[in-house]
Design a binder for these strands. Structure first.
Length: 238
DNA sequence: CTCCTGCTAG
DNA sequence: CTAGCGGGAG
């Protein structure tokens, strides 16, 4: 049996090459040990996950919370209200989440499309993961990350979510997902993690949440390596 | 000033 | 490929 050695594979002190997939698992263990279970996604319903997934695009979560609180306070955090309320009113309610004109329009389009083709969100999300993913990607304003977030947290599809934090982590480590930022980085990173870690709903949910925790406070654009739980393993080590 | 759990139109 | 979207926090 031949052991393949990757150029980016880490090594033990004995000099044996660690297969790249093992790195992903080690990252998970270290993050889980440091941060514990995150219990993501913070939402009270699958519909709230859907709304949050759209509102949080390139937006800090604290701002999304304000927008969702506004919707809840207005008793408008439901498909019927979102779909039928005047566009201008929705814009006012979700304004704190930014991009409010785009997001108000897309939110209504998405909710109308989903609930006109299915009786509820769970029905819409039922079926083969890849096929449901394509249905989501066909909706306006829903790209790869948003689609995967909805599949994983609103649905029960064990699909790996890649976000800006994941790509930053992958580049700093480095993981074999493509050196420079590029167009299909998303799919390469997704394929790497899904190949490294057997599909498991709770594990995938936790992993993404842990990466977000790392990315928000520690693995930032200007990294704070001194407080990073992965610093022994990472190539960055500033 | 930069950054935030992106996506789309041009 | 880039520009545009946008308010809130540090």
């Amino acid at each position: 049996m031949v052991t393949k050695r990757s150029s980016s594979g880490a090594r033990t002190t004995a000099g044996r090459a660690i297969p790249d997939p093992a790195v992903a698992l080690a990252i998970f263990r270290d993050l889980f040990g440091a941060y514990g279970p995150r219990h993501w996604w913070p939402a009270q319903s699958d519909f709230e996950v859907l709304v949050g997934a759209i509102l949080t695009q390139n937006t800090a979560w604290t701002n999304v919370e304000r927008a969702i609180a506004n919707l809840r306070d207005a008793s408008a955090l439901d498909p019927q209200s979102i779909a039928t309320m005047p566009r201008a009113r929705l814009e006012v309610l979700i304004r704190p989440s930014g991009y409010f004109r785009q997001k108000a329009k897309r939110l209504q389009q998405v909710v109308r499309a989903i609930y006109s083709s299915a009786p509820d969100l769970q029905q819409f999300l039922r079926g083969d993961t890849e096929q449901v993913r394509q249905k989501l990607l066909a909706l306006p304003g829903i790209g790869p990350e948003t689609a995967d977030s909805i599949l994983l947290y609103a649905g029960t599809h064990p699909t790996f979510v890649v976000d800006a934090y994941t790509l930053r982590l992958a580049q700093r480590f480095p993981l074999p997902v493509g050196a420079a930022p590029g167009r299909d980085d998303y799919h390469r990173a997704k394929a790497y993690f899904e190949g490294a870690i057997a599909a498991d709903l709770q594990l995938y949910r936790e992993f993404h949440a842990l990466i977000v925790e790392l990315g928000k406070g520690t693995c930032r654009p200007k990294p704070k390596c001194e407080r990073c739980p992965l610093q022994q393993r990472c190539a960055q080590k500033l």
